[in-house]
Write a protein that binds this DNA or RNA. Structure first.
Lengths: 163, 163
DNA sequence: TCGATTTCGGAGTCTTTTATCTTATTTGGC
DNA sequence: GCCAAATAAGATAAAAGACTCCGAAATCGA
């Protein structure tokens, strides 16, 4: 309703990448498997984040992706803007093409403060905070997974990959 | 981004119907023409609003639709709920199926107050208020139309209908 | 250098939402 | 009773969003 599936995947993936932020590249396939995100779809999302300088990629064996910026510097707003553009923050609620302050739609003025607050919240929320919450097990990143499952415990039940 | 096209059309149509709230039935074709809403699509939306007791319909010559409730009693929230259900107010931002207060998603707690405020605003905003704003020409209902155009002024340039 | 592994990028498919078409059914007036 | 005007409802089509496939390019290790 608020975010596209792309943005959702982008946020989840970046949290996962930041969790493994040891300087090594995380293979996209691993992200896809652990978070249950369709592999090829994720690939394209990460390509966008790469062009936006949020992550960097490396091909070949032991390649993958890693953060290019400090997770304390990456806001959730920035992620959403990279993937969805600014529709969430600026498009008219009733989709009137020229809705603005001079001749707004009936909901414009009522909505404006709320979406402003939303944008403020998202621009003040840094990736690092969400990562901390996941790491402390206060929140979950997927419907079934616990943090422990993200890290090389032992016998990884090999799931069929989502290619 | 926030509302589906159906909800948007529903809100616009109800404002238009309330503008013509003289006790007579407003033909759906007229709403469709004046607001540039696809006729058959609008028909189905209004059928839902009819089942929800928000409007009543009448077939046959000089038939159409009219409000069943006082526009002061119809909230925008109610319209959205009728058409889209409560997804806007309750569905997890990251679409985690079991995101709740016990084990939420990373954005749950940050989003909660904002969407609560959104719901409060929409439940406090009554159709009558939006109607007044349109009537007073403070806001516009479609991208091009002025209030005067809604009422039988004179030579109506007959547009091709959107069937 | 070769082969395996991984991302890149273009094209194509599937699914959901939005919109259209067609055939009833109801209603009112003559 | 019949015709015209309107909504009701089901089937179909188009557009957008979500997802897949495949060949190419880069990289690493043997």
């Amino acid at each position: 309703m608020y975010l596209t599936q792309k943005s959702i995947y982008a946020i989840q993936a970046l949290i996962f990448i930041a969790l493994n932020n040891s300087g090594e590249f995380v293979p996209i396939r691993e992200i896809s498997n652990k978070l249950n995100i369709p592999f090829h779809f994720l690939t394209k999302i990460l390509q966008v984040l790469s062009k936006q300088q949020i992550i960097e990629t490396c091909r070949g064996p032991s390649g993958g992706v890693r953060l290019r910026q400090d997770p304390n510097q990456i806001s959730i707003e920035q992620i959403i803007l990279s993937i969805d553009g600014d529709r969430l923050f600026s498009e008219c609620i009733l989709k009137l093409p020229d809705c603005g302050n001079s001749k707004p739609c009936p909901l414009h003025d009522l909505f404006a403060p709320i979406r402003e607050e939303l944008q403020k919240m998202l621009s003040n929320t840094m990736l690092a905070l969400l990562v901390k919450m996941v790491r402390d097990n206060q929140v979950k990143l997927t419907s079934v997974t616990q943090v422990q499952d993200f890290f090389p415990g032992q016998k990884q039940t090999k799931k069929p990959d989502h290619s």
